[in-house]
Design a protein around this nucleic acid. Structure first.
Lengths: 170, 170
DNA sequence: GGAAATAACTTCTTTAAACGAAGTTAAATT
DNA sequence: AATTTAACTTCGTTTAAAGAAGTTATTTCC
């Protein structure tokens, strides 16, 4: 981004918070590499063709956000390894959901690039979905997003706008 | 982004493709609004405090990418409604996974901002996870990412790098 | 043990895309 | 007919991204 890089920190919404940290192409690509087992500065660079200054910046941000931690490489003391924290590993469902969405809608004609198999059973993993307690697949229209009373004006503002439009319109 | 806006289109990887389209804060925030039922230009602007030029651009991109479609508002013929396509609706699991991840790691001290309930049962939706066929929760280390033979050099390059490092190191 | 190589950065300059503000067009309400 | 409103477009400025070159501290090679 440029102009004046906006902050979404003020928006009282979990997704906006997440986007504040993760809504950057390089951040997401670096994390994707992590899930493939890439841990070192040079390997990120070799794979992603990212400039050193940007890579440094994004790794720093990821460490600051608590998704990665820095450690000295035990094999080569010069080296540094960037390892996923629990918070970082917990991002895995988002990454896989993104991967599967992309495979569904931007698929190459000659089949999937990458198959994700459960190591234990050797079967493909399930498609990541929003599920009910009894495992029904839910779409957006099946889900009620209940705004908590304590929420800021932001969320309630939306609901009022929509109410006004539906009710008073025409 | 600036300098020279990088394209990830060349990277032969589903996630990179997805990030090419969706790895932008405004794109994600607009889509989040969509899932909340916001459909009109002014409502996006009122909610997100996004400048008109950027909003125009991002809506255009979303239409071009096939996640939204433009239609004339039936109530007010001046108006335009932006509606989710099937591809757009299919992004829902990614959004909810992101939401839940954020609630887990950036939670406010006074509880969740938004509760997601299954309309049918009124119970909370399940946490979005990567699941095996028999519904075991899988983390990254439980999943084998099998690279297809037909994949480009990119993916295989990673595997070779890692092999070399493990094998020939020390 | 000294020289060359390598890992992981910093610093610097250039560039172009993103941002915000103000202006525009066309439809609808008064 | 005049005013308001929706949905943009245009324009100038800002600023982060890219890329190249330089830096420091190990480590391997001879």
């Amino acid at each position: 981004m440029s102009g004046a890089r906006r902050s979404f920190a003020g928006i009282d919404c979990a997704v906006a918070q997440a986007i504040e940290q993760m809504g950057d192409p390089w951040i997401l690509l670096i994390l994707r590499c992590q899930f493939q087992g890439i841990k070192r500065f040079d390997d990120f660079q070799g794979h992603l063709q990212i400039s050193t200054s940007v890579l440094t910046d994004r790794l720093r941000r990821l460490v600051q956000a608590g998704l990665l931690r820095k450690e000295q490489d035990q094999q080569d003391k010069r080296g540094t390894v960037y390892l996923l924290t629990e918070k970082g590993m917990d991002f895995y469902p988002v990454m896989i959901a993104l991967h599967q969405w992309s495979e569904r809608w931007e698929a190459r004609e000659d089949g999937p690039r990458l198959e994700l198999l459960d190591k234990q059973s050797r079967e493909p993993v399930r498609t990541v979905r929003v599920l009910s307690q009894d495992y029904r697949e839910l779409s957006a229209k099946d889900v009620l997003a209940l705004v908590d009373d304590r929420s800021g004006e932001m969320m309630q503002d939306i609901q009022e706008r929509l109410k006004r439009r539906r009710g008073d319109a025409a």
